[in-house]
Design a protein around this nucleic acid. Structure first.
Length: 694
DNA sequence: TTTAGGG
DNA sequence: CCCTAAA
């Protein structure tokens, strides 16, 4: 038989799926309206439940958490999910919004919703097995979209579904305009709750997805984070991660093989007989190394070991998967996985709000703003509870609002026999996607192209609270290193970083020619940030590099349709950072630092004068110095752009001349001349700054 | 990861 | 600013 290789790129970002939402925690909460209305069931109590849960979890966790996440405080709440329950299927309720619509392309997205189930009013909690239940899976729903464009690209999109709290059902959502498929999934989704350190947080943290009623883009996630928050602790991302585990399971069942490859081309293989799916995380060549790194297989390795389970498949429907997964998951895997994933999953939830804006915030969120979401990072120990009221440097408000419309996903490669049915293909893709997620994705925060790893820094410290930086804020999905469950327990591994960076451009798609990347494109990086910074949106999605999100969406069709597109278009994705002219103050600081340190020691210059300016890399400083020198050398009339005080230019030239004569920097050594003494160790202190030159 | 330069 | 070769 031949195998077709489908390569997909998954762009999370692309249209279709914006964000899958996965509400983790309190589902009920998520739904705005429903909750109360549905009072009837347990839903009503969602918060309460959550709170109680959280409390339990906390208690339990504390011990565990200590072990597991000591460092970070990740401990998240667990989620317990009771068994899975949902089972209703409502197929056709369109919940969410669209994936993008492209005019031409219709996408159909399918978003399942997850509903929390309560078992009894009190639901989960009770049922949760103390141990295992730690977390409940959440899940994500996957969506498929078929865009042409994407199809072309053979991307897979995944979408998260949002769920309604009350309902147990999934619904498929279709996008408007998209002629294609709409599928509804019946699947059941499990949810897990994450335990959070604090119950409150739980509450806060829940995410809401958009609902049909939701406003505009259901898919969009808006996150609000207190600027002060330490990245690690406070914000929680509701990821689909949880679902991940499930996915993994799924995979096995089919015998699909997933391979994750990193740039190096190492693969992981999950294996199994039937179809093989390989998921590659290759990055688009955007060239974004960063991204690549992220994607690299190392990260992705995931635990391939899943169990097999049966699933039905003929349907071709996703449903089976979902259901199966869950079931399986619940039954068996859970425990195991829980342990494994727990950390991750649990980790953080912050409240995420779906774009609709709305969930009833009041109940949940502490934050003043209503629709805000918070995220927590799992990593930090910091309690979410504390939201920062503090003002951020840059931002006016203490909260940073982010909106993530879509995430990008790396490419997936799938191999299936020609004889495979479309349904199996779909499943395969689904599995591949889920497996990826399942493995444990964690959210990485990229600011100005740099992965922000320090989870303990506050957003304001990191610069994320600044609007300007928001543009360059992106979220990426990173493989959970932890995949190896045991290891990571405590550590940071899990801790995802949430940083958001907004990518500058949503470029990526355009190249595709396909209209699709609609959402992304729209959002172009800059556009959005207004007061609120929207972080990822389109950009992220678009940018492969920046924004990734966990939620998987799939385009099945696309897959089928486009078996092999391999065109990696690098250019597409790459985007340029937003331009950020140096202010006079920055120039002054730079000049001062160079006067002391001399050129050639850009790292030290950065540390000395721009340590807190995350967006200024040492390369930027070096480049700026280069331009300053040039500017100083040319006639004032020839200078363009924001004028730099002549005084500074004079200092630039003086320093340049000085260092040209003196050995410019010797890294290890201080220079004999003027400067040295101060310089060497002065680094950060250097503040005293001695204007050496002059 | 930094530097150093060209683009 | 980006991208890279070198270190």
């Amino acid at each position: 038989m031949l195998e077709m290789v489908l390569k997909k790129r998954i762009r999370y970002g692309f249209n279709g799926f914006r964000v899958p939402t996965i509400p983790k925690a309190p589902r009920s909460a998520r739904r705005r309206g429903p909750l109360k209305k549905t009072v009837d069931d347990g839903q009503i109590c969602a918060f309460e439940l959550l709170a109680s849960l959280a409390g339990k979890l906390l208690q339990e966790n504390e011990s565990s958490s200590a072990s597991s996440n000591a460092s970070e405080g990740n401990d998240l709440p667990l989620i317990s999910d009771a068994d899975i329950k949902q089972e209703q299927k409502d197929e056709n309720k369109p919940l969410i919004a669209d994936c993008h619509n492209h005019g031409s392309h219709g996408e159909s997205a399918f978003v399942p919703e997850l509903g929390l189930q309560k078992r009894d009013g009190k639901c989960f909690l009770k049922e949760m097995p103390p141990d295992e239940c730690d977390y409940i899976l959440e899940h994500a729903s996957v969506t498929r979209n078929s865009d042409f464009s994407e199809k072309l690209s053979s991307d897979v999109k995944s979408v998260f579904c949002k769920r309604e709290t009350a309902s147990k059902d999934f619904r498929g959502v279709t996008e408007r305009g998209s002629p294609d498929l709409v599928e509804s999934c019946d699947g059941n989704i499990e949810k897990g709750f994450v335990r959070q350190q604090e119950a409150e947080k739980l509450v806060d943290g829940y995410m809401t997805m958009n609902n049909a009623n939701g406003s505009k883009n259901p898919m969009d996630l808006c996150l609000e984070i207190p600027a002060l928050v330490n990245s690690g602790s406070k914000v929680k991302l509701p990821m689909c991660v949880d679902s991940v585990p499930d996915a993994s399971f799924i995979r096995h069942k089919n015998g699909v093989e997933l391979v994750s490859r990193d740039d190096d081309e190492k693969f992981f293989r999950c294996t199994k007989p039937s179809t093989n799916v390989k998921a590659f995380r290759t990055l688009t060549r955007t060239g974004d190394q960063r991204i690549r790194k992220l994607l690299t297989s190392k990260y992705w390795k995931v635990g391939p070991k899943l169990k097999d389970y049966d699933t039905g498949k003929t349907d071709g429907g996703l449903k089976p998967f979902l259901c199966h997964k869950r079931k399986i998951y619940q039954n068996r895997e859970r425990c195991q996985y829980n342990s494994l994933y727990k950390r991750r999953k649990i980790s953080d939830w912050n409240s995420v709000v779906i774009s609709d804006g709305g969930f009833s915030s009041e109940s949940v969120s502490n934050s003043p703003e209503k629709g805000m979401n918070r995220e927590k990072n799992r990593g930090n120990g910091v309690s979410p509870g504390v939201m920062g009221h503090q003002a951020t440097f840059c931002s006016k408000d203490s909260h940073v609002k982010l909106s993530i419309k879509s995430f990008r996903v790396p490419e997936l490669f799938i191999e299936v026999p020609e004889t495979a049915t479309v349904g199996s293909l779909k499943r395969t893709v689904m599995e591949a996607v889920t497996s990826i997620f399942g493995d444990g994705l964690r959210v990485g925060v990229v600011l100005r192209g740099k992965n922000v790893r320090d989870d303990n820094r506050t957003l304001s410290q990191t610069g994320i609270s600044c609007k300007d930086n928001l543009d360059s804020l992106g979220f990426i999905l990173e493989p959970n290193v932890q995949a190896s469950p045991p290891v990571c327990a405590d550590d940071p591994c899990d801790t995802p970083e949430l940083v958001s960076r907004s990518p500058a451009n949503p470029i990526f798609d355009s190249s595709d020619a396909l209209p699709n990347p609609p959402s992304l494109t729209n959002s172009g990086k800059n556009v959005e940030f207004n007061n609120e910074s929207v972080i990822s949106h389109a950009d992220t999605t678009v940018n492969h590099s920046r924004a990734l999100v966990p939620v998987p969406a799939m385009n099945i069709e696309a897959l089928a349709m486009v078996p092999a597109n391999q065109k990696p278009r690098r250019s597409e994705f790459a985007q340029r950072r937003t331009r950020r002219p140096f202010s006079v103050a920055e120039v002054e600081a730079l000049v001062h630092a160079v006067e002391e340190l001399g050129p050639g020691r850009w790292r030290d210059v950065k540390l000395l004068a721009f340590e807190d300016a995350d967006h200024r890399t040492y390369v930027d400083l070096k480049d700026k110095w280069k331009t300053l020198v040039h500017t100083g050398e040319i006639a004032p009339q020839q200078r363009r752009g924001a004028p730099v005080p002549q005084e500074l230019l004079d200092r630039v030239l003086a320093a340049h001349a000085y260092w040209s004569h003196h050995q410019i920097k010797q890294p290890g050594k201080p220079h004999p001349g003027i400067l040295n003494a101060s310089e060497i160790h002065s680094d950060k202190d250097g503040t005293q700054g001695i204007p050496l030159i002059v």
